[in-house]
Design a protein around this nucleic acid. Structure first.
Lengths: 232, 232
DNA sequence: GTCAAATTAGACACCGTTGTCTAAATCGTC
DNA sequence: GACGATTTAGACAACGGTGTCTAATTTGAC
């Protein structure tokens, strides 16, 4: 086989035009991969769900593996952009931190953690993370895995302002995320998306506890290293 | 249903003497199913890992599906028994609740949440929960899913004693578990088992925040709680 | 309308897996 | 050692999935 022919073939249909099919394939593939896992997903199933012939998939993406990584890259980019935009709405200057932090948590869960892309990534990292270590690494460093460090930096600002009392910002960030997910895990485990009421309730409960643990206590003047813990 | 009862009914080899092979198969199958998922796991792979011929597996368990449910039942029974025994060590009467609760959290993560069986069940429920709804239901009601309600009841006792200030016991139980997992999620996501140091650190961080949020506050004079004894 | 690119359906070889079958080998118990 | 139960290796058909190929059809730009 000549090089030119190979190049033409591997290049596939022109990348620019008719991206409708590409998107349709990516979308369907994401759903099927998420539902069935890599080995459980079949190209035929993806083709049917994308309303596309099987051959078209092979024209655009040489093989199943290529399609898989393309899907992961696509979702990761989207999730990353969304996460960035949501993090920008963190309430740095607030006269009602509890309410604003609750609304922020609500945005975070709704648009980053519990939406289609978030569930896809979490599931894929869990099921295929060991088989594709680079996938996992990308998710951790360049992707939503950095949400913890970003949150830690934001909490550090609030702490330096004296609004919060945090000694370990990373721990606080992880705990914030864990608390936000506390009420939602049972729901997302099913594969369902939580309702708006459930999201709000979860955010409210989480931020309430978080504030109780980390809010600056003005009336505690004798706090000299002695924790508020009761030794009953 | 217990695995031994099922074995009595099955037409396979007599279940009395050679249970070594059965256990070996169950153990290997658990590992492979956990690693590869149901569709990704192959009987041959399980046979090799169990040091058993493929035919022996088919002799004991008619087909792949039967083997899978047998594995799930087996692990679920074991995890359930362990969970029960750990829950019995909850510090109901403690003169140092923070330390004792930390130790309890440590036992919980070590023996129920982060051990082999715990990871297997969580992973399986996540990947195959939609394909086998009865599996999920069993996990939720009869299995480790009830850990939340059990913890809620225990926290309610502490709250009624005045040691803790909790308004919603279920929320507090979920948050306790979420906090305990907060530092461990990144580790268990890899498939690794956390070290003892990591477990202790996670438990300490979790209980510290939990107590900060829910411990009875000495400076809150509006409450009509039990009088407190401050540690000297 | 023309023409090239893209898409489609269908057939195909190839491979791995499931589950069955058989005959030989091994184990446990007497 | 004998004997029944169990395990084993290997061959086997059936099935589904991947990836290729071809020939026909549709699309889109001019």
């Amino acid at each position: 086989m000549k090089i030119r022919e190979a190049a033409l073939k591997s290049a596939g249909p022109s990348q620019r035009g008719n991206c409708a099919k590409r998107l349709s394939i990516l979308d369907a593939a994401a759903n099927v991969f998420c539902r069935e896992g890599f080995s459980g997903a079949s190209i035929d199933e993806i083709a049917v769900e994308a309303c596309v012939s099987r051959q078209t998939i092979y024209n655009h993406y040489r093989e199943k593996e290529t399609l898989f990584t393309a899907v992961v890259d696509d979702v990761m980019d989207r999730a990353n952009a969304t996460l960035f935009s949501i993090l920008a709405t963190f309430p740095e200057n607030s006269d009602n931190l509890e309410d604003d932090l609750t609304a922020f948590a609500n945005r975070l869960t709704k648009n980053c953690l519990c939406n289609q892309d978030g569930r896809f990534l979490r599931r894929l990292v869990q099921t295929e993370g060991e088989r594709y270590p680079h996938l996992f690494e990308a998710w951790r460093q360049h992707g939503p895995g950095k949400i913890t460090t970003a949150l830690a930096a934001l909490f550090a600002r609030l702490s330096h302002k004296g609004v919060l009392e945090i000694d370990d910002f990373d721990v606080a960030a992880r705990q914030f995320l864990a608390l936000v997910n506390a009420d939602l895990q049972m729901i997302t485990l099913f594969g369902d998306t939580p309702t708006q009421e459930q999201l709000e309730s979860a955010s409210r409960n989480a931020v309430r506890t978080f504030m109780r643990a980390y809010a600056h206590r003005k009336d505690d003047s004798t706090r000299s290293g002695v924790p508020l813990v009761v030794a009953g």
